[in-house]
Amino acid sequence: MTRTDLLSIQGLRTEFPTPDGPLAAVNGVDLEIARGDVLGIVGESGSGKTVLGLSIMGLVDRPGRVAAGRIAFDGTDVTAFSEAQWQGLRGNRVAMIFQDPTTSLNPVQRIGTQMIEAIQAHRDISSGAARQIVREAMVRVGINSPDERLAAYPHQFSGGMRQRVVIAIALLNEPDLIIADEPTTALDVTVQSQILRDMRRLCRDSGSALIWISHDLGVVAQIANRVAVMYAGRIVEQGATMELLKSPSHPYTAGLMASMPANSPRGQRLISIPGGLPQLSNMPKGCSFAPRCTRATEACEVLPDLSFISRGHGVRCVFPLHVGASLAERN
């Protein structure tokens, strides 16, 4: 960790109690994000990537809780924050965008009200001044005639428009970090790529760092300069986007890439990784990917440490694929 890191997470563990003892949805995660960085977090649904995002926001629903680890935001450990301290942070310095734009907005409140309150929660300014900021934010995310739109209710907007509103809200207070949890999954492809482009531009303009959570490696590749791959609550591989895509070291990352439609030969079935995520209540002893891995041996029954292949490219695997290994070598 360097002093310039905006966010530094060490050994984060987020648990949910069950009658059979606590289950860790996020288990020993280390992450660093510098100012202006765009980090993509990739994983299947259930891999813990959303819970990771919520942990950073202090929004893990009870009875779930951050059980261990440190989340330092701009040098301050936030894990021990009081609710009031969180309120000052959320929406102000860290903002979050959720997956489904149709449900992120309150159906019975005007769009304008929902935007203005986000400003007034953090700044002591008049409604008129707040309205002016909101208007500009609307234009920035590409919504024309904002005045008319501000008086409307969410159901009068299309899905894409609603997500733009949500993005505008996230940007209102010029946060240092935006966490976007699959914000384009529910949208159709054209709208998706538009929003992706806009998002990149907006973050660059405002200097905000961005964490983009997705199950789609392809989407992440378009926006992120660094990628972390999550599997069953752990980060199994992370590194610069270009390097990671060129030479995936963890068999799981390689599998993810192989299953991307663009990487499959035309006219053939898509390759998929056999099996599914292990149950949190029934985790393998060592590497959690071992049961699905073709390279696994008994050595994998011990949890591997994060080892660095090159600067900034770490992998948690006993038998990492060789640097520069092609997919063909795997077979």
Binding site: M57, Q87, R90, F98, A121
Partner: peptide, 13 residues
């Protein structure tokens, strides 16, 4: 519901 979570993410009291 999501919009309550989003409202919390906005930093509302």
């Amino acid at each position: 519901l999501d919009f309550i979570r989003f409202a919390r993410a906005k930093g509302l009291a």
